[in-house]
Design a protein around this nucleic acid. Structure first.
Lengths: 109, 109
DNA sequence: GTTAACGGTAAGTCTAAACTTACCGTTCGT
DNA sequence: ACGAACGGTAAGTTTAGACTTACCGTTAAC
């Protein structure tokens, strides 16, 4: 099992995928709509959507001959959780550094 | 000028870079320390560090013949801001969808 | 039942970038 | 002053993956 938020973060590495996510954040769209809004072909969009879906960042539903994609809030939550974790580590790291520095000052006296 | 948080997010697309960031989150380290903790060569680490530095995610300082790298909190803040923005869009998107749905219900009567 | 719109998938190409080895400059210790 | 440790950079290789075209199945409209 791979940590969820970490590779979801990796999904946003590609600019086109970021653009898709940003478009879907504003409102759900069909594959064709996305393709028309982007400088790449429709199959390219389909492939990105599959990756995003596998990563848990989007969900889709059939609507006649079309397929409506929208962001999966859980995916965003997972990414934020990952960043929060990093943030926590950084804070405690800084705190330890500060404590060590003050110890040094004490010893200097 | 390119949006700050967005391409910082792109930097975490690479697994090795994510590992470096996670190691630096816990405590500052030298290049050699990072390389020893990772399955890639030291030059590879150097190259990743340059990318991370250009992206504003890490800062470094000379210490004798070594070079100490640590996370730049501003970088994390920027990434979180980006995610918060997406989150905001998703929320308003859902809200609009809910409103539209309730309007539909009204019209059904 | 036929046609058109929509979208997923397969196959192949091509480029970006992650990695290696080799080399060089700098700083410290002795 | 000399050697060793540390780390940045250049050059070259190789792989991942983003993209295209071509094709096929499905649904809906008429």
């Amino acid at each position: 099992m791979e940590a969820y938020g970490t590779d979801a973060l990796g999904l946003l590495g590609d600019p086109t995928r970021r653009a898709i996510v940003e478009l879907l954040a504003r409102r759900p769209r069909t594959v064709g709509e996305l393709a028309r809004a982007l400088p790449v072909s429709r199959p390219a969009v389909s492939q990105h959507l599959r990756v995003l879906k596998d990563g848990g960042l989007v969900v889709d539903q059939a609507a006649g001959t079309r397929r409506i994609y929208q962001l999966n809030p859980d995916g965003l939550v997972a990414m934020r959780a990952y960043l929060d974790r990093l943030w926590d580590d950084v804070l405690t790291s800084f705190q330890k550094a500060a404590e060590a520095a003050s110890v040094d000052v004490e010893e200097e006296k």
